[in-house]
């Protein structure tokens, strides 16, 4: 491996060195030099654009929500009241407790479903499957990840709804269960991909050493590979949670969109994201309702930011250790 890199690097080093000589030689600023500088600038812009965008988005949603946060907003009511009634004629209330409970319950159930499936799939693809089976499985998992969320929502609305009513004999099928299953299926492929990468990152010498000690394939996987890939797997799960938290269309269609503190998986709920999606379009710009929706946006941004940051730090932890 090390040899390959050294060999690959030496021919590339040639032109780069020549370029450096030209850069200091002012008489030889030819087209190549300008192209080189131009590309450097482009790559630099590409590199920092993500940071610029994330700051831009944060500044925008904060600006839109600020008037509400420092004006009408009652922090106690916002986080502890389930009453989300922004368009009430005489007493508008802005409580997101029920919406948070809706998002949390759906995401929680989705993870209960997605974690065993995705870890199982990742272990099979990374450790047991070989040759074509493995290639086909990888492609299929990636295809599954590419299904648009509105299609998942459609499945929840038209297939899962009557199915849940029939199987569980409940009055309505647009529930935590429906959305949780849909979201679990949506998050599983992404989690599988990342978990598989984490397993592949475990050096082969671990496996070889364990096998040399007489461990079976299964023992190697459970006792050596999984513990070694622990951080990467945890990162995969956290990214799945982030995906669940931020998903909008599918939960809008499958939860029933009812403001409700759920007491069982057969209750309809409403998610934070779905509330913004359903209401922002027809809200007067600059009204309290509009700013309250942006405040939900800030809250969602902060939560997903923390989850993704944690996932990132956890995954980085495995590389250092």
């Amino acid at each position: 491996m090390a040899n390959d890199i050294a060999e690959g690097a030496s021919p590339a080093g040639g032109p780069a060195q020549r370029g450096r000589i030209q850069a200091t030689d002012f008489d030889r600023r030819d087209a190549d030099w300008y192209i080189d500088q131009g590309i450097q600038l482009l790559v630099f812009i590409g590199g920092i654009s993500a940071i610029v965008f994330i700051i831009g988005i944060f500044v925008f949603i904060t600006k839109e929500g600020f008037g509400f946060i420092f004006g009408e907003m009652d922090f106690g009511q916002f986080f502890t009241s389930p009453r989300w009634r922004p368009t009430s004629e005489y007493n508008p209330t802005y409580g997101i407790l029920a919406l948070v409970a809706g998002t949390a319950s759906v995401t929680g159930l989705a993870m209960l479903i997605a974690i065993p499936f995705s870890l199982g799939a990742a272990i099979y693809i990374a450790e047991f499957a070989t040759g074509k089976t493995r290639e086909y499985l990888k492609i299929l998992v990636e295809l599954l990840a590419a299904i648009p969320s509105i299609v998942w929502g459609f499945i929840g609305l038209t297939i899962m709804n009557p199915l849940i009513i029939k199987i569980f004999d409940v009055p309505i099928g647009l529930t935590v269960l429906n959305a949780g299953v849909i979201l679990g299926l949506m998050a599983a492929p992404i989690m599988t991909s990342i978990a598989e990468d984490a397993l592949k990152a475990v050096p082969d010498r671990y496996r070889e050493a364990a096998e040399a000690m007489g461990a079976t394939h299964w023992q190697v996987t459970i006792k050596v590979v999984l513990p070694a890939a622990r951080n990467g797997l945890l990162g995969a799960v956290l990214l799945g949670v982030g995906r669940g938290f931020g998903e909008t269309m599918a939960v809008l269609m499958a939860t029933g969109h009812a403001i409700n503190l759920p007491s069982s998986i057969f209750d309809s709920v409403r998610a934070l994201t779905a509330t913004i999606a359903a209401e922002l379009g027809e809200t007067a710009v600059g009204s309290n309702h509009y700013m309250a929706l942006f405040t939900i946006g800030i809250f969602l941004f902060v939560v997903t930011f923390v989850i993704n940051l944690t996932a990132d730090l956890v995954v980085r932890g495995v590389r250092k250790g």
């Binding site: 004629e89 309505i172 403001i259 309809s268 359903a278």
Partner: peptide, 18 residues
């Protein structure tokens, strides 16, 4: 407005369709 008047709100937990 027609069913509840101006001084009353819908109960929570209705399925709000789009």
């Amino acid at each position: 407005k027609i069913t509840l008047g101006k001084r009353r709100d819908f109960r929570l937990g209705t399925r709000d369709m789009h």
